[in-house]
Amino acid sequence: MAKLEVEITVNGEQHKLKVGSQERLLDTLRDELKLTGTKEGCSVGECGACTVIVDDQAVNSCLVLTAQVDGSEIITVEGLESKSGLHPLQKAFIEKQAVQCGFCTPGMLMSALALLNTNPTPTKEEIKTALEGNLCRCTGYQQIIDAVEMAAEEWGV
């Protein structure tokens, strides 16, 4: 089957790619662009480990074909850290020990970032809603919610 040409911006960098008709954004990020921070968990949109931000919205990259996001701007967990160091969310996750095995962490960070980008002062309930599509089998969630709250406070300053 013929490949399709797409142009996407990932973490600020433009890419011209030829993608297959069944290629998911998750596959492109991991296999083509070698951005393996984005994880594949359930592959059916339940666990949120593959969450990335597409045009300011958190989405499951396992449920989007790359051809569908032609022209879009994508942020993955690799886009968080900058020259000035770790992102406030990353610092807060470390500070609050919101990471255990770490498999869900990239997805959690992306859902949290999408939230804080649109709502810099979320309530606890809003944080829970933003993270409800992300499963964590280790932490019991409390530390993660604490970390997002902390990041919101620090970032807002």
């Binding site: 949109g45 949120g48 919205q57 958190a58 499951n60 449920l63 859902s111 809603t129 933003a130 599509g133």
Partner: peptide, 9 residues
């Protein structure tokens, strides 16, 4: 319906 990620798509 679903989760934030699902509702966005």
């Amino acid at each position: 319906i679903g989760s934030t990620q699902i509702r966005n798509r």
